[in-house]
Nucleic acid binder design. Structure first.
Length: 589
RNA sequence: GGGGGUGUAGCUCAAUUGGUUAGAGCACCGGACUGUCGAUCCGGAGGUUGCGGGUUCGAGUCCCGUCACCCUCGCCA
């Protein structure tokens, strides 16, 4: 193998005349009978190699090269003659006239080639991930991800944070998401759980006097994946002692600013702050996308006058009516609005009343029912000709918010109302600490049960849990939740009260979280933290909509790794050692 | 667990109402060609239409089941 002197993106006309050696993969070959061209690709780019028949040995070897063969070559860097340069290639002004080539490894004919992988199905890409990752797009994502973690580590080092690893084999705490379990051989019948997050360890680290902790931490949640969710994912996990929420937010904002600057050379503006209730009321979401309007407008009082039974019935039952005005939405066909109505039902509303604005008044749909109040409606919604009005109606206000919030996102996408050039970041704060589960009639923690209530709300914890606000903050970027954090409870009595409220008596709480309660008793400082999602940050930076694209070796929706074929059955001897026996009949191959 | 979508050559796709031997581009193999750069030209090979069953004279196409992948509801403290 020749000693590599340059990368394939490195050479230009200043290198003309130099002897160089390159190594990489055959991106494409063009055999002209006499002269043979090879596009040689490495991590950094592509350089054209030319083989002349005069170098019989090298030319003979080059003749046999095919896509994805691995070669090293030596030759002379030459400037291309006038008219022979390739403006599509960064190194298109030069080529390497090769006099020696060594085939380091032949490749089987690949199922697809990195050069022409656009449009190749994801299933085949995941099966041959080692080929897929050779694509420049995937290399760019891997590089971005590295840049991000490097910036994070540098930044937190400068601020005096310690990077500390926490265990992957943890105690199972059945609250929250479903745990991945790992059987213990030494304690047969007992199990570890993989961490859903290092939450409790980092709080213990605060009790341990670390003061500033950070970790790029793998987290595991055994729940069904989504486009932006994977059972195994990565968080930038951090925690600080003696801080206010504002200080954690400032530190987080700082790292986000530096990441966007370092990777994209973008100066993010200062992040505005919005209260949870405002986000829900105006956008129907706790992660509002501020790049477009389509705000939810409460029209309950206006439509009350119209005596449209669908609306009045809901309001009499304690509900509300909200509307969004969709600019240009009148071009949607009846079929399309019917589809929207059907789709929106999954969020709990009975349908989607709509009407269009034409000639300065309402037309079609529910127009005739709203005739008496049309003027007030148009004015309140600032609607004009060509707009579509969509109404969310339910006896439960949160159902209206959810349904219209989801509709808002879908319409913005489909009608292309999103300004793709913007970065709209904001903090959402003042979340309720608890939410009421209608099924069980119990209260549960909206974030997690270690989030501190606002000090002024501690008195009403038991008397009015629904009104308690937590010291919780989420960072939202372009409609995606990127970080979630809070000030924690550091007083064991308060923590015990929260456990009780959530239905864990002292003994159960002690069994599950005894170590945390103990730590709180022995001088735990006030502390708080946050956990930015690394995968989602990289998704935003690289403009990907699929979390699998930013993970080197991701899993499918059924948790399978198509490359390694995990998960897979294990041998009887392994099970025996763990004293495990599958209860289900193993499916035949 | 529920809803929706996809599955045809190595890859991306086509195939009229159920009707002859399931086609095309790229890749592959052979040949030609000394300046291409997604090379070109000539020729060739390549198919369990995801799998199993059913209806039919006849199924890629219709029906039932099943598997895989994608989106989504539930779920995700």
């Amino acid at each position: 193998m020749h000693v590599r002197t340059h990368h394939c993106a490195q050479l230009n006309d200043t290198h003309a005349g130099q002897r160089v050696s390159l190594a990489g993969w055959v991106n494409s070959y063009r055999d002209h009978g006499g002269v043979i061209f090879i596009d040689l690709r490495d991590r950094e780019g592509i350089t054209q190699i030319v083989f002349h028949p005069e170098n019989a040995e090298a030319h003979g070897l080059a003749d046999s090269l095919r896509d994805e063969d691995v070669v090293s070559i030596s030759g002379t860097c030459v400037a291309r003659q006038e008219g022979m340069a390739n403006p599509k290639l960064a190194t298109g002004d030069i080529e390497v006239d090769a006099d020696a080539v060594e085939i380091l490894n032949k490749s089987l004919t690949p199922p697809f080639t990195p050069a022409l992988a656009n449009g190749v199905g994801e299933e085949i890409r995941l099966k041959y991930r080692f080929i897929d990752l050779r694509r420049s797009r995937m290399q760019e994502i891997l590089r971005t991800r590295h840049q991000v973690t490097k910036i994070m580590r540098d930044y937190f080092d400068e601020l005096g944070f310690y990077e500390i690893e926490t265990p992957l084999l943890c105690k199972s705490t059945p609250e929250g998401a479903r745990d991945f379990l790992v059987p213990s051989r030494i304690n047969a019948g007992d199990f570890y759980a993989l961490p859903q997050s290092p939450q409790l360890y980092k709080q213990v680290l605060m009790a341990s006097g670390v003061e500033k902790y950070v970790q790029i931490a793998k987290c595991f949640r055994d729940e069904d994946p989504r486009a932006d969710r994977q059972a195994e994912f990565t968080q930038l996990d951090l925690e600080m002692s003696f801080v206010s929420a504002q200080e954690v937010m400032d530190v987080t904002e700082g790292v986000m600013h530096r990441i966007w600057k370092g990777v994209l050379d973008v100066d993010l503006p200062k992040f505005p702050v919005m209260k949870y209730h405002e986000a829900m009321n105006r956008f129907g979401s706790d992660k509002p996308d501020l790049r477009y309007g389509l705000e939810l407008v409460d029209v309950s009082e206006i439509v009350r006058q119209a005596d449209f039974r669908v609306f009045t019935a809901a309001m009499e039952a304690g509900g509300i009516v909200k509307a969004i005005c969709v600019p240009g939405g009148a071009k949607l066909t009846r079929r399309q609005t019917d589809d929207l109505a059907e789709w929106v039902k999954q969020f709990g509303v009975g349908g989607l009343p709509t009407t269009k604005v034409e000639g300065g008044k309402l037309s079609t749909g529910v127009a005739k029912f709203l005739e008496p109040v049309s003027e007030a409606l148009l004015s309140q919604l600032q609607a004009s000709d060509g707009d579509l009005l969509c109404f969310g109606v339910s006896e439960k206000p949160h159902v209206v918010h959810r349904a219209l919030g989801e509709l808002r996102v879908r319409l913005a996408r489909e009608l292309e109302l999103i300004d793709q050039t913007q970065w709209r970041c904001l903090w959402v704060v003042d979340f309720p600490l608890f939410e009421h589960d209608e099924g069980s009639g119990r209260w549960s923690a909206m974030h997690h049960m270690f989030t501190s209530p606002k000090p002024e709300h501690i008195d009403i914890l038991e008397s009015d849990p629904g009104s308690v606000i937590g010291e919780h903050y989420d960072l939202v970027v372009n409609g995606q939740e990127l970080c979630s954090g809070s000030i924690r409870i550091h007083n064991h009595e308060l923590q015990q009260r929260i456990f009780s409220l959530l239905g864990y008596d002292e003994q159960v709480a002690s069994e599950r979280f005894g170590f945390l309660l103990e730590a709180l008793k022995y001088g735990a400082p006030p502390h708080g933290g946050i956990a930015p999602g690394l995968d989602r940050i990289v998704m935003q930076l690289t403009g990907t909509e699929n979390i699998r694209d930013v993970i080197a070796f991701p899993k499918t929706q059924t948790g399978a790794d198509l490359m390694t074929q995990a998960p897979s059955p294990v041998g009887d001897d392994q099970l025996k050692e763990l004293q495990l026996r599958p209860a289900l009949t193993v499916k035949p191959d």
